Amino acid sequence: MLHELRCEACRAGAAGALTNQQLQELLFELDGWRIVTRESVPQLEKTFQFSNFKKAWSFSERVANLADQQNHHPSILAEWGKVTVTWWTHSLHGLHKNDFICAAKCDQLYHVGD
């Protein structure tokens, strides 16, 4: 299961960008995540729902802690009642298995809750 894996080091020019088939296979393992493209860069994104801002903020902090533990950092947008998390591998200008690992870990954090 993806949430049990740990991110591996990834540097500019390194192999690791996923093929379309690999992207679809990994996306199938996630719940509610989608691939969006911004400025020609595919990114993995999901919006999590909460009953208020404090719960959304608390989840954002848990995602930030996860990001530091994995040494892989997403875009996190916290708003009233929702948090949007976007993962992509900056050095590859695209998606790597690390992004899917971290997405699965976010889902675990969400289901554990406060």
Rank of each mutant, 00 (worst) to 15 (best):
E61I: 15
E61G: 12
D107C: 06
K105V: 01
A17N: 05
F59Y: 09
V85R: 10
A17K: 02
W88M: 00
V112D: 10
Q43R: 13
A9G: 08
L2Y: 11
D114F: 10
L5P: 01
I101R: 03
S60I: 05
E45K: 12
R34H: 12
V83H: 01
N52M: 09
V63F: 04
L5H: 03
T86Y: 00
D114T: 15
H96C: 07
R34I: 13
P42Y: 12
T89D: 02
F48N: 04
V41T: 15
Q24K: 15
S91Q: 14
A56S: 14
P42G: 02
A14E: 11
A78F: 00
E8I: 09
G13F: 14
K97R: 11
A103W: 10
H3T: 12
F59S: 03
F100T: 00
P74S: 04
H3M: 08
T89Q: 01
N65W: 00
G13Y: 11
H96M: 07
Q24S: 12
N65A: 15
Q108F: 15
P42A: 05
N71P: 01
L66R: 08
H72G: 06
W87S: 04
L95I: 11
N52D: 12
K55I: 01
A56Y: 04
S91M: 06
R6T: 02
N52W: 06
K54C: 00
H72K: 08
S60R: 03
W57K: 04
A104C: 14
A17I: 13
K46R: 10
L5K: 06
M1D: 15
A67M: 05
Q69K: 11
Q43C: 07
L2P: 14
L23A: 14
D99W: 05
F50L: 07
A104T: 12
H90F: 15
N52H: 08
V112C: 01
H90I: 13
L66D: 00
A14M: 11
G113W: 03
I35C: 02
T84V: 08
K55N: 15
L27C: 06
E45D: 04
C102V: 07
G13A: 14
H3D: 12
W87C: 05
K54I: 10
R38D: 13
H96Q: 02
G94Y: 13
A67Q: 03
P42E: 08
D68W: 13
G94H: 07
H93T: 08
Q108Y: 13
T19W: 02
T37N: 07
L66I: 13
A17C: 06
T84F: 01
H3Q: 09
A17E: 04
T89A: 02
H93E: 15
T47N: 02
G32V: 07
L30H: 03
K105F: 05
A15L: 12
D99M: 07
F59Q: 03
R38N: 14
A64I: 12
D114K: 15
P42V: 04
A103V: 12
E4M: 13
N20W: 09
A12T: 13
V36L: 10
F28Y: 14
F59K: 05
K105Y: 03
H96F: 09
S40N: 14
E4K: 11
P42N: 06
Q24N: 15
